[in-house]
Each structure stands twice: as structure tokens, then as C-alpha cells.
Design a protein around this nucleic acid. Structure first.
Length: 318
DNA sequence: ATCTATGGTCAGTTGCTGAC
DNA sequence: GTCAGCAACTGACCATAGAT
């Protein structure tokens, strides 16, 4: 029993220094914070970053496994969202009976990170033209992303469920709501509290801006690499075209060589046949001369050739 | 080519346990 | 008593295979 208890013994608590280090690391590694790498081999790259992060965190407190640090990060994000919900709830409450302490610097940083990663998407996957909207609307987006009392809820006419992540769908309609009386939220104290919330979130947005600037720099490097790759591909296409032409020329050469070989073979055959005929004629001529006792005349030679159906033209041309 | 079902993975949430 | 640690559960997303 005690052994079983020893197996399930919890590891020592993490320190504030470790949390600060964890949040700092996540603020500069948005892909890791969101858990989604958009590049090839994304899982292995993420594992390597988690390993590197766990080694960094070991230097500031108790040692934990990568899985444990993943859980810590997940729980941290969840708690920060809950804290922000508390702050918003307190700011909306009437009667000044509820109080929620303002967000700490660490919580603001976490909010900036998860705001970029889950509320509005991963910066590395941003679309053209999205940047301005993100920077300007981020505070409002977070401000209104928690349940409002029923009298404040704005119902979209013919509202339909939208596809996409729940975090996106939870984004409530704009503050300027049509057909709603202006004085629903018009008390001065509520305005002051809201203003304070916006100021707090402004600092979080500034953190996000820093992250996004780094991301933009990375994107520029990526674009340069892609451009180099494209020029290299053009060079390869030129080489491939040259190789195609060389192959076609070689094939044509092979065809011509085959035709030449065929003609040579035909010529050899004709030459062999002519040699054979000439040999036969000479043999017969010599036998005739032997029979005529050495008497050789031009008329007898022509007669011999004529008998064998060979004309004088043939002898002249061959 | 498009649609649908299925399985895997991961984030978020909740509730309980135990360290501090 | 507080809160980190942990397990279980749920839902969203994605890739893939099979059907149409």
C-alpha cells in the first residue's frame, strides 16, 4: 500500500521563477503555446522545443517531465481565463459588493499569448489584411468573450451555428449593438472599470505586438527562402529541358545509325552476290578457253556473257 | 469528385487527492 | 485551508478510407 502510495507520489510544486520562465518562453514560441506547428515535421519540432523548455525550467526549480509541463501550461491557461472571467464579472456587478484583484503581470502575459493562439488564431497563419483588425480589436474581443447577463445578450437575427473552433464561436457580437438602449451599461462606475480593463489589456496587446513583429521577421525570412527555392527550381527546369533535347538527339542519332547499318548490310549482300556471279563467269570462261585450246577471241567472250544473260552494260556498270 | 463514417490527437473542463 | 497535480471526460479538429 505504501509502495503504491510512493508510486503515485506527486512531484514537488513548481516555483514562480519556473512559471515566469515558462511564460517568457511561450511568448516567444507562439507555435508551441498554441500546440500547433504549421510546418512539416511539426510534432518532432514541438517535442524538441518542449524538451529544451523543460531543461531550461529545471534550472529554476523541481524537475518535471515534458508531459507534466504540458499539463502545467494547460492548467495555467485555463486558470488565467477563469481569472479574467472573474475580473469581468466583478466589473459588471452592481452594488460594489464583489471585488476581483486585477490581473498580475504573469497573467497578462499568458492572456496575450493565448489571445494570439486561440482567440484569434495563430499569428503564423494570419491572412493578408488581418493585422490591423487584430491589433485594433483585440482588447474588445477579449473584453466581450465571456457570458453576459441575459439582458445584455445580443441575438443575431436568423442566427445559425458557425463552423470552426469553439473559441471563435464564443466571440460575442460587437459592443455597438443595434436596437439596444444606450443606458444599459451607462453608469459612470461601470465605464471606469471597463476603462481600467481596457488599459490592462492594452499591455497584453503590446506583448502580442512584439510577438507578431518577431513572427513577421520570420515570415520575411521564409519568403526569402521560398524565393531562392523558386529560382533553384527554374534552374532545374532549364537543365531538365536541355537533358530532354539531348535525349531526343540521341534517339534520332540511333535511328540514323540503324538505317545506315541496314543500308550497309544490303550493300554487302549485293556485293557478295556480284562476286559470286563474277566467279562463276570467270570459271566458265576459263573452262571454255581450255576446251578451245587456248584460242581466245573477243567474240567468244561476248558470246559467253550473252549466254549467261549478262549484258555489256552490266559489266561496265559493275 | 464529393460526401460520410471513423479513429487519432489534443485542448479545455471538472472533480478529487494530496503537498504545502 | 489553499491550490497544484492528476485522471477522466467532452468536444473540436484533422486525416484517411470507403461509398456514392
Amino acid at each position: 500500500m505504501s509502495q503504491n502510495k510512493e508510486e503515485t507520489k506527486k512531484t514537488r510544486r513548481f516555483t514562480t521563477a519556473q512559471i515566469a520562465e515558462l511564460v517568457d518562453y511561450m511568448s516567444t514560441h507562439s507555435d508551441l503555446a498554441s500546440g500547433r506547428f504549421s510546418c512539416a515535421m511539426g510534432n518532432s519540432a514541438m517535442d524538441r522545443q518542449w524538451e529544451a523548455l523543460s531543461k531550461i525550467l529545471e534550472e529554476h526549480g523541481p524537475k518535471k517531465t515534458v508531459a507534466q509541463w504540458k499539463t502545467v501550461w494547460r492548467d495555467l491557461k485555463c486558470k488565467v481565463r477563469a481569472r479574467l472571467a472573474d475580473v469581468n464579472r466583478a466589473s459588471r456587478a452592481t452594488g460594489n459588493t464583489t471585488y476581483a484583484p486585477p490581473l498580475t503581470e504573469i497573467e497578462k502575459k499568458v492572456l496575450a499569448i493565448i489571445g494570439t493562439a486561440s482567440a484569434i488564431g495563430v499569428p503564423s497563419m494570419e491572412e493578408h489584411g488581418l493585422e490591423v483588425a487584430v491589433l485594433e480589436e483585440q482588447p474588445i474581443d477579449i473584453e466581450i468573450s465571456f457570458p453576459l447577463p441575459s439582458e445584455f445578450e445580443w441575438i443575431e437575427p436568423h442566427a445559425e451555428s458557425l463552423p470552426g473552433p469553439s473559441s471563435v464561436r464564443n466571440v460575442t457580437p460587437p459592443l455597438a449593438q443595434p436596437n439596444k438602449p444606450e443606458n444599459f451599461l451607462s453608469s459612470s462606475s461601470k465605464k471606469r472599470k471597463r476603462h481600467t480593463d481596457v488599459e490592462e489589456l492594452d499591455s497584453a496587446v503590446k506583448l502580442f505586438q512584439g510577438i507578431q513583429e518577431r513572427q513577421n521577421s520570420t515570415n520575411k525570412e521564409l519568403a526569402t527562402a521560398i524565393s531562392k527555392l523558386a529560382s533553384a527550381q527554374e534552374g532545374l527546369q532549364s537543365v531538365a529541358s536541355t537533358i530532354d533535347k539531348a535525349v531526343a538527339a540521341q534517339l534520332e542519332s540511333n535511328n540514323l545509325q540503324a538505317e545506315a547499318n541496314r543500308l550497309q548490310s544490303e550493300a554487302n549482300r549485293l556485293q557478295t552476290e556480284a562476286n559470286r556471279n563474277i566467279t562463276a563467269l570467270l570459271t566458265e570462261f576459263l573452262l571454255d578457253r581450255q576446251r578451245n585450246k587456248g584460242i581466245l577471241s573477243h567474240s567468244s567472250l561476248v558470246a559467253t556473257f550473252s549466254k549467261k544473260s549478262y549484258s555489256s552494260e552490266y559489266l561496265q556498270t559493275n
